[in-house]
C-alpha cells in the first residue's frame, strides 16, 4: 500500500512569517541586533545596582594600577645631559620627581614645559629611555652679552632672551655690556659692532641704545662715539681709521658724532675748550708783546 508523500502546505501566516524571517534586514537584525540588545540589557540591569558599579570601577582601577606598577614600566633614575652642574641641580629641583615612579604617572609634556621655562635653558627633551631611566637632554642658553637694566645686570643670549642674572660686572668680564631701551632686540648688531671695534676694544666700556633707534659706543674717559641708525659698522670703521691716522680718541675729545655720516663732528671736552681758548689768548699777548 502506498501513501502520498507527506508534503503539507504552510499556512498563509506561516509562509509570511518565513518570508519575513528571510528578509536580509531582518536576518541581520536577528543575527547581530538581538545578541547585542541582550548583552546591553543584561549589562544595563546589572549596573543599575550601585554596589555593582562600585565593584566594577574598583576592579578596573585595581587592574589599571597593577598594570602600571609592573617593573617594565617603572622609572627609577634620572639622567640629565647637556647641562653643567648648577643647571643640572636646578633642573633636578624643578623636575621634582620621586623615584621609583611608573612611566604612566609621569607627565612628560608638563615636565618638559617646566624645564624649558627655566631661564638658562633654551630647550629640553624629556623621554623615558631604556632601563627605566628618565632622560632629560637640556640645551642651555649661551649668554652673549650683559644687559644693564634698572633692576640690575642680566645676561642675555643671541636671541635677546634673558639667560640669568649676575650681581656685578666683574663676574662676567668676558661678556660685552649693552644698555638702553630696546637693546635686547638688536643683539646681533651690537655683537657685530663689538667685533669690529678692533684697536679700541680695550678702551670700550659698552654700547648704549639711544631712543631704541641707534647705538652710542661708550669708551673710558667718558668718551662717546655716536653711531648712525643706518650703517653703524661703516661709521665705526671710519672713526677707527680717523683714530689710526690722527689719534683722535687719544686727544681730549668728549664726543665723536657720526650721526650724519657726511659730516663727522667732534665735541671737545670742557677743559680742552678752556685750554685752547687760554692758549690762543696767550699767543695773542705774546705777539702783542713782541
Amino acid at each position: 500500500m502506498t501513501r502520498p508523500i507527506r508534503d503539507p502546505a504552510p499556512s498563509k501566516w506561516g509562509y509570511r512569517w518565513q518570508r519575513w524571517m528571510l528578509t536580509p534586514g531582518v536576518r541581520t537584525g536577528l543575527r547581530v541586533g538581538v545578541p547585542m540588545a541582550t548583552v546591553a540589557l543584561v549589562a544595563g540591569l546589572w549596573s543599575l545596582n550601585d554596589a555593582n558599579r562600585a565593584l566594577l570601577t574598583d576592579r578596573v582601577a585595581q587592574l589599571t594600577e597593577a598594570f602600571h606598577q609592573r617593573p617594565q614600566f617603572m622609572v627609577s633614575e634620572l639622567s640629565i645631559t647637556g647641562a653643567d652642574e648648577t643647571l643640572a641641580d636646578s633642573v633636578t629641583k624643578v623636575a621634582n620627581v620621586t623615584f621609583p615612579v611608573s612611566s604612566f604617572d609621569l607627565d612628560l609634556a608638563g615636565l618638559r614645559t617646566r624645564i624649558a621655562a627655566l631661564d638658562s635653558v633654551a630647550d629640553a627633551r624629556v623621554r623615558v629611555g631604556d632601563a627605566g631611566a628618565l632622560e632629560i637632554a637640556v640645551t642651555p642658553r649661551v649668554p652673549v652679552a650683559l644687559w644693564r637694566t634698572p633692576e640690575g645686570l642680566r645676561m642675555i643670549d643671541a636671541d635677546g632672551v634673558f639667560a640669568g642674572a649676575v650681581t656685578s660686572r666683574s663676574d662676567r668680564l668676558d661678556l660685552p655690556l649693552i644698555a638702553g631701551q630696546g637693546a635686547q632686540g638688536h643683539i646681533a648688531e651690537a655683537l657685530t659692532l663689538f667685533r669690529s671695534a678692533g684697536p679700541i676694544a680695550e678702551r670700550m666700556r659698552g654700547l648704549v641704545r639711544v631712543g631704541d633707534r641707534r647705538w652710542d659706543m661708550v669708551l673710558d674717559r667718558d668718551q662717546r662715539i655716536l653711531l648712525p641708525a643706518d650703517g653703524p659698522v661703516s661709521a665705526l670703521d671710519r672713526v677707527i681709521a680717523l683714530n689710526e691716522a690722527q689719534d683722535v680718541l687719544d686727544r681730549d675729545v668728549a664726543v665723536v658724532d657720526m650721526r650724519v655720516p657726511q659730516r663727522p663732528t667732534l665735541r671737545l671736552a670742557q677743559e680742552a675748550v678752556i685750554a685752547t681758548r687760554n692758549a690762543s689768548a696767550a699767543g695773542r699777548v705774546q705777539r702783542m708783546g713782541q
Binding site: 508534503d7 503539507p8 502546505a9 504552510p10 509562509y15 518565513q18 518570508r19 528571510l22 528578509t23 536580509p24
Partner: peptide, 18 residues
Amino acid sequence: ERAIRTAVQAAQKMAEVR
C-alpha cells in the same frame, strides 16, 4: 495557491533568501 506556497517556501529555505 497552497502548492505554490509549499514549493516557494522550500526553495527559499534552501536558498536562504527571500
